[in-house]
Simulated assay, not measured.
Amino acid sequence: MNEQLDAEIKLRLMAIFNDEALCYEWLNNSKKPLGGISPLDALKKAEGKAKVLEMITRIETGDFS
């Protein structure tokens, strides 16, 4: 996974997917809740980390909408 990626995001994604390839795929594919950009692109913006963490929390709690 990307060495520049935030440690908290890495840990939480690995807990969800338990596979680096799946984490990488999730990070690189566009997401509607992020306005159609990928989580990696969202992380380049000031508010991006909060939005990505919100998506991860939703997955962790079973909300896949």
Results as ranks from 00 to 15, higher is better:
1 M>C: 10
1 M>G: 13
2 N>Q: 14
2 N>D: 13
2 N>P: 11
5 L>P: 09
5 L>Q: 13
6 D>R: 09
6 D>W: 03
6 D>G: 11
6 D>C: 12
6 D>P: 08
7 A>T: 09
7 A>H: 12
8 E>N: 12
9 I>L: 10
9 I>F: 01
9 I>H: 02
10 K>V: 12
10 K>N: 14
11 L>G: 11
11 L>A: 14
12 R>S: 03
12 R>G: 02
12 R>W: 05
12 R>K: 09
13 L>K: 00
13 L>M: 06
13 L>P: 02
14 M>A: 13
14 M>P: 00
15 A>N: 15
15 A>V: 15
15 A>C: 15
15 A>W: 13
16 I>H: 02
16 I>P: 01
17 F>A: 02
17 F>Q: 02
18 N>P: 03
18 N>V: 06
19 D>K: 11
20 E>H: 04
20 E>P: 04
21 A>W: 05
22 L>M: 07
23 C>A: 12
23 C>R: 01
24 Y>E: 13
24 Y>T: 14
24 Y>I: 05
27 L>Q: 03
27 L>Y: 04
28 N>K: 15
28 N>F: 10
28 N>L: 08
28 N>I: 08
28 N>D: 11
28 N>S: 15
29 N>T: 14
30 S>I: 09
30 S>T: 12
31 K>C: 08
32 K>T: 08
33 P>R: 12
33 P>W: 08
34 L>P: 00
34 L>F: 01
34 L>W: 01
35 G>Q: 04
35 G>M: 05
36 G>I: 07
36 G>A: 08
36 G>H: 06
36 G>D: 13
38 S>K: 06
40 L>F: 12
41 D>T: 13
42 A>C: 10
44 K>P: 06
44 K>W: 06
44 K>E: 12
44 K>M: 07
44 K>C: 07
45 K>D: 12
45 K>Q: 15
45 K>R: 15
45 K>H: 14
46 A>L: 11
46 A>V: 11
46 A>S: 13
46 A>G: 11
47 E>C: 08
47 E>W: 08
48 G>H: 06
48 G>Q: 05
49 K>N: 02
49 K>G: 02
49 K>D: 02
50 A>F: 11
50 A>R: 14
51 K>D: 07
52 V>A: 00
52 V>S: 00
53 L>K: 06
53 L>H: 09
54 E>N: 00
54 E>I: 01
54 E>V: 01
55 M>N: 04
55 M>R: 05
56 I>Y: 00
56 I>F: 00
56 I>E: 00
56 I>D: 00
57 T>K: 09
57 T>W: 11
57 T>A: 06
58 R>W: 03
58 R>P: 00
58 R>C: 01
58 R>D: 01
59 I>C: 07
59 I>W: 04
59 I>P: 03
64 F>Y: 12
64 F>N: 09
64 F>D: 07
65 S>L: 12
